[in-house]
Structures are given as structure tokens and as C-alpha cells.
């Protein structure tokens, strides 16, 4: 019977590919939200495998806050080049200007919450009925209760009470006009699964995931990259450290971790040893309140 045995990564991959194909089969105009982070990179790999020898039958969409790591943008363009996928970029800065939105102020002011406006506009502009995202249930407790097919109203709002029960592997993607579905194919993966998969599939990553020297602002436990997007005050401690990124978000709200890990093996070993969660260690925006993620999701965040 051993020839029929699948490894846990095979099982996770099979489930995620099944979900990708459900999206392509059930929706008219799906899109894949791509940030250049490891989770959305994993999504691209799964989408490639799901539709071979055909191309990915939906575009990649990048909601660009303007506060990206240049390395992530470079990587994004390389992926598009390599896979022949269609890329759509929409800028948060344009939404801010057009809608007269008020930006956050303060030390680590972030456009993270404003991204939702641009995302909703983009969904409307292209008539997307499904957006595939790289959220995982292990990240955060609001995400632990998220469905794989998450129905959103025309404001993109997540209503925990309206969630549809999800049984077996049957995903109900029926929606009314104006609604859309957020789909999370790697819901059941944890951080280490993603890394082990990247290692197994030998997927290239943006260079900032590996150790490099960087000028950082030392803010309590957080190391924040010095960039034009953060305010430096008198008395701030600026140091050059060996760091890498455990997660890649905006330069304004993603903290680096001290590390000398230069290969994926090093990174996997490091994550095995760490006793701090991914979001706890790196996401300044989640530390504001216990329900920060829950609130963002209700406002259309993915």
C-alpha cells in the first residue's frame, strides 16, 4: 500500500489545487492578490501547478501601497516575466488623492487599512467576483474562524454571522450581484508548512527573506527598516544590524528579525526554534488592539 501514501505537503497541495480549480470553475472573473510575500508566492506556485500545461487563467493583482520593499517589487515583475501571468497594479496613493482619504499620522503611520479602499475600487473596476488571497488560519484568531470561500458584501465586509457552513470539500461560490468572494486556498497551512513547501519546490524568494545588513530603527522589540516612509525623531536609535524578514508587508509596519539565516534550511531551523508567533514578531499594526485584524476584515480587508 505504500505507493499510495502521501506526505502532508502533498495532501495540503492537493487540497489547495482543488480550491484553485474550484475558483476557475465557479467564477467568471477571478483574480489572485499578489504582494510579493511568501504566502502569495506559494499561491502562484499552486496556481501554476493547478493549470499546467495551460497558463494561470486569472490575473495577478497587486494593491500597491507605495511603501513596498523595492526587492519585493523587483521580484513581482520577475514572476510575471517568468510565468507569463497578467499583472494588474493599482496604487493606494491614487485612491487617497481621488477620494481625499485621510492618511494615518504618527510614528509608524501605515497605509495598511487604506489598502481596502483601493482593493474594493479595483474589484469594482474589473468586476472581479472572486479574489484569491494568501491568508492562513494559524495567523490570527479572526482568521482561524474564516471560511475558505468567504462571501463579502459590496462593501467588502466580512460578517462572521453570515458565514456559510463549509462541509466536506464542497465550496458554495454562489453570490448575488455586487457581492464577491475571498478565497483562501492555504487556509490550512501553517507558517512552517509554507517554508517547507518553498524548500521542497525550490521556489525563489525576494532577497529580503534572507540575511542582509540593514539600517534599522530600534523601537522596543521591533527593528524597523529606515526608509523615507517612517519618521525619524531625535533620540531614535538607528543601528546597522544583520536582519531578515519573516513576513513581507509594508516598510512602515513590518519589522525585521535579527538573523544570519542565508538559506531556506537556516530559516526553517530558525522558525523551529523561535518562540514568538509570526505576526507577534513582525506586525506592528496588529499590536494596536486585540481585535485589530477583526476590525480590518469587517472593513473589507482580506
Amino acid at each position: 500500500m505504500s505507493q499510495y501514501k502521501l506526505d502532508y505537503l502533498d495532501l495540503l497541495e492537493a487540497e489547495s489545487i482543488h480550491i484553485m480549480r474550484e475558483v476557475a470553475g465557479q467564477f467568471e472573473r477571478p483574480a489572485l492578490l499578489f504582494s510579493g510575500g511568501k504566502d502569495s508566492i506559494t499561491l502562484v506556485q499552486l496556481a501554476l501547478k493547478a493549470f499546467k500545461p495551460g497558463k494561470i487563467p486569472f490575473p495577478l493583482v497587486h494593491i500597491d501601497t507605495g511603501h513596498n520593499f523595492p526587492e519585493a517589487i523587483k521580484y513581482r515583475d520577475e514572476v510575471v516575466e517568468r510565468t507569463g501571468a497578467k499583472l494588474i497594479v493599482r496604487n493606494v496613493a491614487d485612491t487617497i488623492k481621488a477620494k481625499g482619504l485621510k492618511e494615518q499620522t504618527g510614528k509608524f503611520a501605515s497605509r495598511n487599512a487604506l489598502q481596502s479602499y483601493t482593493l474594493l475600487d479595483t474589484i469594482e473596476e474589473f468586476g472581479f467576483d472572486a479574489c484569491i488571497g494568501g491568508a492562513r488560519r494559524d495567523e490570527e484568531k479572526a482568521r482561524a474562524k474564516e471560511r475558505i470561500f468567504s462571501v463579502r458584501d459590496e462593501f467588502g465586509a466580512w460578517d462572521p454571522k453570515r458565514q456559510r457552513p463549509e462541509l466536506w470539500n464542497l465550496y458554495n461560490g454562489k453570490i448575488a450581484k455586487g457581492e464577491n468572494v475571498r478565497v483562501f486556498p492555504i487556509s490550512n497551512w501553517v507558517e512552517l508548512d509554507v517554508w517547507n513547501y518553498i524548500k521542497r519546490e525550490q521556489i525563489e524568494l525576494p532577497s529580503i527573506y534572507f540575511t542582509h545588513e540593514r539600517e534599522v530603527l530600534v523601537h522596543g522589540e521591533y527593528l524597523v527598516a529606515v526608509s523615507p516612509f517612517i519618521r525619524i525623531d531625535e533620540g531614535d536609535i538607528i543601528e546597522t544590524r544583520h536582519v531578515r524578514y519573516r513576513t513581507v508587508g509594508d516598510m512602515t509596519c513590518t519589522a525585521a528579525v535579527e538573523s544570519t539565516a542565508s538559506t531556506i534550511d537556516d530559516i526553517v531551523a530558525e522558525i523551529h526554534k523561535t518562540n514568538i508567533s509570526e505576526r507577534g514578531e513582525t506586525r506592528i499594526d496588529d499590536q494596536i488592539s486585540e481585535a485589530a485584524m477583526e476590525d480590518r476584515k469587517k472593513n473589507g480587508y482580506f
Partner: peptide, 13 residues
């Protein structure tokens, strides 16, 4: 709201 969402998922290995 005194409601309970149907299922929450937890992971360990």
C-alpha cells in the same frame, strides 16, 4: 452579540 461562529480551526504538529 452572544453568537458563536460555527467552527474554529487550530493547528499543531
Amino acid at each position: 452579540q452572544g453568537i458563536t461562529i460555527d467552527v474554529a480551526y487550530k493547528y499543531f504538529n
